[in-house]
Write a protein that binds this DNA or RNA. Structure first.
Lengths: 238, 238
DNA sequence: CGTGCCTTTGAAAGAGCTCAATCCTGGTGG
DNA sequence: CCACCAGGATTGAGCTCTTTCAAAGGCACG
């Protein structure tokens, strides 16, 4: 059996109780281990329509945040791992559903100081939020480019590289994929079947290896990066 | 001849010199007409790689903000009209190109107070920024859902409704489309040809009318909204 | 060691894309 | 005021990448 969450339990290099992702920032966040919550795999953090609980930071494990269309079509806004912060509401209610992909631990920051009285917002904290959100916005724009213009192999290459970058949990080019093929598909605007076939094709091209359903290994990062950036010169001619 | 920009010159209901989009906020923004710049149609505000000039607010006209892939594939992040603010950089350089679609007027806010010294950031201003960006992020998520999962008629319905909402410039359900078909395509992840064909189909379904290449009129808003939300029950069976 | 869910594979169909030609329209110059 | 031009818009035909539908395979978990 493969224990997928185990490898996430390595020592933390960031402050593990706050959203600043920096070592030793306890004076800013004031968080301790007693603020920690947990959920089991497949349990739900919040549903669309739920009241905003506050700012959520994932301490351990992975969650997915999903939007639905009436007829069931889904889009996964993103996957959130250790250290990531979920900040997804303008009007006090979530328009997303968040579900644990693995067992998770998380912290909630209530946002009294960010309510309707802007004077209560500390400038330092606000500045941090701004750069967080600015980064998120840039990520969103890149992802829109991916969805609007990239082919399936380009999408998966981009995704794998970006995911590996965020999930530095395994060694020697090995990357853990805690989410299902269907989840990847819903994040990348594809179908489960196309994700499978494209991964297979990448394996045949010797760009990656599929060591296990949930563990892929990079064999040719340069090629991956070429694909991710839309240069497909290594693809066999049709 | 059709003067496309004329209809944008109606009296402003918002503060026209600042990014707060509120009437009479001069004490916050400190802007006057002397801060105004202009550009002609097709001229460029900034190129990818340009140094961040500051926060740009469009006072009049429309611009498009574009991202490019190496091989020329394009994605238009968004169209910005009167009152909109462009805030697109994390590292001091633009990773986008901004081009005027019509003649435009705009203001630049230099961001000395948002530099590396977070204490110089006024909490009120920061709070405003936060809600702006939060809104942008939500718009981005909706757009990703559109790109990932919606059909061409659903994309165009969503776009037309959203665009009309932001461009309340014409009466009786008429909407001005300052951008070309190709621009719409690059925003919606389609091709010029598919945009044309889909608009034609919507016209045949009597959901819209194309009064002029750049002016469409809503004939059945309910149907449009159904399409936009992914309910295609009005579509003729195949 | 069975069961159910997820993954993989196959075959056929289709939505949207590509390439190419033609049509408009607004702007230009006479 | 009119003819002409260039660039965008439209239309057509064929094609391709993905999707859809269906079935089989494999693995984790009880």
């Amino acid at each position: 059996m493969l224990n997928v969450t185990a490898s996430n339990d390595r020592p933390h290099t960031l402050c593990q109780y706050c959203f600043f992702r920096e070592p030793g920032c306890s004076k800013l966040c004031g968080k301790t281990s007693s603020d920690m919550h947990q959920l089991k795999k497949k349990e739900t953090l919040f549903y669309e329509g739920d009241r905003f609980k506050g700012l959520i930071q994932i301490l351990n494990g992975t969650i997915k945040v999903t939007k639905y269309l009436d007829d069931g079509r889904r889009f996964i806004v993103g996957f959130y791992h250790r250290g990531d912060v979920i900040w997804l509401t303008t009007d006090g209610r979530y328009s997303y559903t968040a579900e644990a992909i693995t067992d998770i631990k998380y912290t909630v920051f209530s946002l009294d100081w960010l309510s309707h009285d802007p004077h209560s917002l500390d400038a330092v904290v606000a500045s941090r939020f701004l750069s967080f959100m600015c980064g998120d916005l840039e990520v969103s724009h890149d992802h829109m480019m991916l969805l609007a213009r990239k082919s399936s192999i380009e999408r998966l290459s981009s995704f794998l590289l970006q995911h590996a970058e965020r999930m530095k949990t395994l060694d020697r080019g090995m990357v853990l994929l805690p989410m299902s093929r269907g989840d990847m598909a819903d994040h990348l605007g594809m179908t489960t079947e196309t994700v499978c076939r494209t991964l297979k094709k990448m394996k045949q091209l010797r760009v990656i290896n599929i060591d296990h359903v949930k563990i892929i290994r990079f064999l040719n990062i340069d090629a991956l990066q070429s694909f991710a950036e839309g240069r497909d010169e290594l693809l066999p001619a049709v």
